[in-house]
Design a protein around this nucleic acid. Structure first.
Lengths: 127, 127
DNA sequence: CTGGGTGCAAATCCTTTGCACATTG
DNA sequence: CAATGTGCAAAGGATTTGCACCCAG
């Protein structure tokens, strides 16, 4: 594994946020001023394929990558777009029981209005 | 509503499959040889915004549109890519109970190996 | 040396958009 | 005529890829 690969993996693994390829690229530029976006994509996808990280697809947006590979789901605020990890207990059993065999995996995104946006909206409503 | 809009809506509504914008466009060309892809996109999105149809986002793929607007989820075969509607009873309650308030909606994709692909794989394995 | 990794730029794919023209009412 | 929709082509964003070069083992 090259220095750049280690750095990319480290950026994703050590971030508590979900990062787009461009964001990873920007962070990486500080350490490797000549790194290219193509290399970032190549390695992120490689890491995702080998399950070292997880790639998350969202509507009308770039894909995001995260270091948390333990099973979990995601919420996205429809106002500010912030993505967060959520745990929905027993979801796997629930789906398997109801959908039946042959399940490989599942992706769940819960669209929410986050507390920040909710309070903003509320204050504006009061005007 | 113009003739083209009616036709676009009709294509999506009368199809039992999920169609990409390009697929809708191709079908529409038979009836309107000079229709443009931009118009198809514009109207599909308009219909989706007004909830006449549903837009479905999937990983590494164009968006698909479907006429079935009653609440349901989707499965995608990881081999052939075919998307199907599925019903997971009580999913809404299940998620709302576990995630709490503020839920706007949710998107669920269950990745499967469909029966066709499963039998193909099986026969090849036998060779 | 030797294969895999990298930078760069071009290419792809999907989708949106600006604009002048056509259509509808 | 006013408003809205349309075709066209260009632009846009995200992602991939071909290729020559470079590096690590």
């Amino acid at each position: 594994m090259t220095r750049i690969q280690k750095a990319i993996l480290n950026v994703v693994k050590s971030s508590k946020q979900h990062l787009s390829a461009t964001q990873v690229y920007t962070i990486l530029l500080k350490q490797f001023p000549s790194v290219s976006l193509g290399t970032v994509y190549r390695n992120l996808n490689q890491f995702a394929d080998s399950k070292l990280i997880r790639r998350v697809t969202r509507s009308n947006s770039a894909d995001y990558y995260e270091g948390n590979i333990s099973p979990h789901d995601h919420s996205i605020c429809i106002c500010c777009g912030e993505m967060s990890d959520i745990n929905i207990p027993d979801m796997k059993d629930f789906i398997e029981n109801r959908v039946g065999e042959n399940i490989v995996s599942f992706d769940i995104v819960v669209n929410i209005i986050c507390s920040k946006c909710r309070s903003n909206t509320t204050s504006e409503d009061k005007l």
